[in-house]
């Protein structure tokens, strides 16, 4: 099932609704990378609350998404890993190093707000 990608101000929010095939994950990756340019988005949130399995492929796709979005000049945060899913991932050695995560959508939005303000400060005087 295709993952809907919603534009919310400067951010894109992809809420995974059901189990995803590899093809769905590739489509999600390509959709986000394209839309970040089309909407000039500053951040991306991928909400995986509904996912009950995160295997090696899904994990690699999330990492690829985060790294590709960064190369496009935006930030990504993955939110909503369930406790059991986190446990299974650690057993498999899937630690998603270098990828930002947050507890839920609310925390993810707060993370991006802070991150983007920080980036803007770093770019010199404004206003």
């Amino acid at each position: 099932m295709e993952v809907p990608i919603l534009k919310q101000g400067p951010y894109l929010i992809a809420s995974v609704q059901s189990a995803l095939t590899d093809a769905d994950l590739l489509q999600l990756r390509d959709g986000l990378v394209e839309k970040v340019g089309r909407f000039r988005s500053r951040g991306v949130i991928v909400d995986v609350t509904a996912l009950d399995v995160m295997d090696s492929f899904a994990s690699r796709m999330l990492r690829d998404i985060a790294h590709m979005i960064r190369l496009r000049g935006a930030e990504t945060v993955i939110v909503g890993f369930q406790p059991e899913v986190a446990f299974a991932m650690v057993q498999l050695g899937l630690t998603l190093e270098g990828v930002a995560t947050a507890l839920d959508l609310e925390e993810g939005l707060a993370f991006l707000d802070q991150k983007i303000k920080g980036n803007e400060r770093g770019q010199g005087p404004r206003g």
């Binding site: 009950d52 399995v53 295997d55 406790p83 446990f87």
Partner: peptide, 12 residues
């Protein structure tokens, strides 16, 4: 918690 582990193992 076990369902998640079993499903993940099957997936791999």
């Amino acid at each position: 918690s076990s369902l998640v582990l079993i499903a993940t193992a099957i997936s791999e």
